[in-house]
Design a protein around this nucleic acid. Structure first.
Lengths: 133, 133
DNA sequence: AATCTTGTCTATAGATATGATAGACAAATG
DNA sequence: CATTTGTCTATCATATCTATAGACAAGATT
């Protein structure tokens, strides 16, 4: 688990959108100005958000971005996973990891890391954008 | 928080030492062979451990490394912090961070991250090497 | 004393990840 | 058809991570 500016920028931008009136497209320019994010970089992040159906867009004058689903249906966990990968503190306890390495024989170590992983997941899955506005 | 091989290697090595009979110096060679860690790399990690008084050493034949304190007095938290830095999920909620950035105005986001940070710290501070052997 | 063994320390190299930018292209609007 | 705004791929600079090299220091053995 390493949350980078990708997650931070994305969260800021999504919360900005969540605060807009319903069905209003907001320009990336506005978000960048308000949240102090480099425009070209946020475009890249939005590309991923759009391809994963978290936001929808329209081009041209009057174009922009808006949430594709109600804020209450977008969890923090899915956003952070999309932007910065698995929430587990180490690869060795990431859900789809398996290999017979020395650390995989340290059962007690692994179980602590798994406990932490589960706590983080549950906490972040229980929160939606609506909870954070 | 990003746990890398530094933390994993270090933990493996410390646990190996914790399992030895008391007052026995163990050669880095042995640890590397047993835990599958590159020797030169582990030397580097041990340097930090030694400078921070977690292990003590002796050179020459019959030399090697051993824990400088009882395993029950070395917490997981201090080792992981030493090797991979702050346990907070993001810089923005790391203890000595302050700056007036957009994220610092998102109180609810920050408080979730702080909650996670506190959970991780408490969990890891409550565990010592002795608990993991 | 000479030599072997093992740890100390600084420098550096290669690979990967992160943060950011450039620019050609596509579609909506007036 | 010109302007505006989003789409997408490529690329770059910097930082971080993993690992190695090599000169040096000190304890052990003979």
């Amino acid at each position: 688990m390493k949350l980078t500016t990708k997650s931070e920028y994305t969260l800021l931008a999504l919360l900005y959108m969540a605060r807009q009136e319903k069905d209003k497209f907001v320009k990336i320019e506005d978000i960048c100005a308000s949240c102090d994010i480099p425009k070209k970089y946020l475009e890249l992040l939005f590309l991923a958000l759009r391809q994963n159906r978290y936001i929808k867009t329209r081009r041209g004058t009057k174009g922009g971005y808006m949430l594709a689903r109600p804020a209450g249906q977008i969890t923090l966990a899915e956003i952070l996973r999309l932007m910065d990968g698995a929430l587990a503190p180490t690869e060795s306890v990431s859900t789809y990891f398996y290999s017979d390495t020395p650390i995989s024989r340290e059962e007690k170590v692994l179980s602590v890391f798994k406990e932490i992983r589960d706590y983080i997941s549950q906490r972040l899955e229980s929160l939606t954008l609506a909870d954070l506005v």
